[in-house]
Computed example of a mutant assay.
Amino acid sequence: MNHEMPLEKAIEIYKVLDIECVLIEGYKKIQYPRVLLCRNQNDSDFIIKSSEPVAIISEKQLKDGSSFPHFLRTEEDKWLKFLMDYIVSQLNEERAYHETV
């Protein structure tokens, strides 16, 4: 393609291809569940303004007062397990919903 595809259009194509999970980097203003990658305490404003946060991953422990799961970047085994569990649970919920509809 000679131009960037709008995100919503790309997501619709992935749905047709029956892809179960799409990881998107950037797009801070989109309304999808997100993992916040924070560099330092200065990113706390980003946490407050974020929609649908799932977890926070940062270099150092943050004092943001949020109730979301928080992982240090070095705790890769923990946050990877959390994210995989989250993705699987969301897929299971979606499948159960479609079976009842």
Rank of each mutant, 00 (worst) to 15 (best):
L91E: 05
D85P: 01
R73W: 12
W79T: 03
N2H: 13
S89H: 05
C21F: 09
P33E: 06
L37P: 04
K63M: 07
M5T: 15
S66W: 04
Y97T: 04
Y32K: 13
E12G: 00
S51K: 14
Y27F: 15
A96K: 15
I47A: 05
E25M: 02
K60D: 11
E8Q: 14
C21E: 01
D18G: 01
A55R: 06
V22W: 00
K29G: 03
L72A: 05
N40E: 14
T100G: 01
T74I: 12
C38S: 11
N42T: 03
N40I: 02
P69K: 13
H3Y: 09
I56D: 05
Q41M: 15
E94K: 15
F71V: 12
E93P: 00
S66Y: 06
M84K: 14
S89E: 14
L36S: 03
L62N: 07
I19F: 00
D43E: 12
A55E: 07
K28E: 13
R39L: 11
S58E: 05
I47D: 06
V35T: 07
E8G: 08
K9G: 00
R39A: 09
D64A: 13
I19N: 00
D45A: 08
Y97I: 02
T74Q: 13
K28L: 06
Y14I: 00
I48G: 00
Q90W: 02
I19A: 00
Q41S: 14
L37S: 10
I87F: 07
A96N: 15
V54Q: 05
F46P: 01
L7Q: 05
I56Y: 09
K28G: 12
F46G: 01
E20H: 03
F68E: 12
I47W: 06
H3K: 13
Y97S: 10
K15I: 00
E8N: 13
V54R: 07
S66A: 15
I24W: 01
E4Q: 09
I57Y: 08
T74G: 05
C38F: 06
S50Q: 02
D85F: 03
I47Y: 04
S50T: 05
I11T: 02
K60C: 02
I13D: 01
T100H: 11
K78Q: 14
V54T: 14
Y32S: 02
F82M: 08
I87Y: 02
M5H: 01
V88D: 08
D85T: 09
Q41Y: 09
D43N: 14
I48H: 10
N2K: 12
H3W: 03
V22P: 01
L7Y: 08
R39K: 15
K49F: 10
T74K: 15
E76C: 02
Y97P: 00
H70P: 04
E4R: 11
M84D: 12
D77A: 14
E94W: 03
E4K: 10
Q61H: 08
L23C: 04
S67M: 06
I11K: 04
E94F: 06
W79C: 03
I56A: 04
M84C: 12
N42F: 11
V54A: 09
N92W: 04
K60R: 09
I13Y: 01
Q90I: 03
L62D: 06
E76I: 14
L7N: 06
I48L: 11
I11M: 07
L17R: 01
L83N: 03
E52V: 01
L36N: 05
F82I: 08
K29E: 15
W79G: 04
K49G: 09
S58R: 08
I57P: 05
T100K: 13
Y86V: 09
V35C: 12
